[in-house]
């Protein structure tokens, strides 16, 4: 059975929330490993791992620098040079926080790398806030490669007219101006044309819509989504209640 995109989104989101609420590193490591296993089974691991590493490696290094080198509340000093004190508590805090963030990031990335974007857009209803959000999401994802390619073409055109990026801030600013202005100008013009086309097709008029793309959904999946959201909300309430009673 194929999962409805909103069901997998509910899965990913509630997993991230529950992992954050649980705040225990065995749970975090298990969730992270599970997410990696899921993406390997789905065949997306090859794209997911570099994307996750690009996010998590700088974050992890930053956590290590911040808490590993200076953790004023730490008692067990492992090494000390100058003002920097490496404490066991600091390292443990950095490790726990990194594990927990990795679990949440991996869970959400598994969703975004496995979801079928046209299905997701079709699942968001085709009018009102949902429809407009779906439009923004879909057109960003399709515009991103197109605009990157257009920026490359503009750079080539300017280079063929003699643009050389020399050292020095002023030269770089001038080069930026030469490339950014044609790009922004053409994008704003295109957007105007697109707005007229959308308006002519009744984009902002109210009323029912029909969709060419049918996304299969079932009562079980709808119930599952409700349960997942309720579980995430319950985890948050439980954690806040524990904090409120001093636990």
């Amino acid at each position: 059975m194929r999962l409805h995109p909103l069901t997998s989104l509910a899965f990913a989101g509630s997993t991230a929330v529950i992992t954050t609420a649980a705040a225990s590193w065995p749970v975090s490591l298990a969730v992270g490993a599970g997410a990696l296993g899921l993406s390997a089974a789905g065949g997306t691991a090859r794209r997911l791992v570099p994307a996750a590493a690009a996010v998590l490696v700088p974050l992890g290094l930053s956590l290590l620098i911040v808490h590993g080198l200076s953790f004023p509340e730490g008692r067990t000093v492992l090494a000390q040079f100058g003002p920097a004190r490496v404490t066991a508590e600091g390292l443990a805090f950095a490790g726990e926080r990194a594990a927990q963030l990795s679990a949440a990031v991996l869970a959400l990335l598994v969703f975004s790398f496995s979801v079928n974007v046209p299905d997701l857009v079709a699942a968001l209803a085709s009018r009102g806030v949902h429809g407009r959000f779906g439009f923004v999401l879909a057109s960003t994802l399709t515009l991103l490669p197109a605009i990157t390619a257009q920026a490359g073409r503009i750079r080539q055109a300017q280079e063929s007219r003699g643009l050389v990026i020399r050292r020095g801030l002023l030269h770089k600013v001038a080069a930026f101006r030469l490339q950014a202005i044609p790009l922004v100008l053409s994008l704003v013009e295109d957007a105007g044309t697109r707005a007229a086309a959308l308006e002519a097709r009744g984009f902002s008029s109210p009323g029912p819509r029909t969709s060419y793309r049918e996304v299969p959904d079932s009562a079980i999946q709808r119930l599952l989504r409700m349960l997942l959201l309720a579980a995430a909300a319950a985890a948050v309430v439980w954690r806040l209640w524990l904090a409120g009673t001093g636990g």
């Binding site: 806030v129 407009r132 991103l144 920026a151 959308l198």
Partner: peptide, 23 residues
């Protein structure tokens, strides 16, 4: 905010998101 924006502004939002990234 989203339902109140005219279509001419709405089509600029994806462009802005891409510009945030590319520029």
């Amino acid at each position: 905010v989203l339902p109140t924006l005219p279509a001419s502004t709405l089509v600029l939002i994806p462009v802005a998101l891409v510009l945030n990234i590319v520029l």
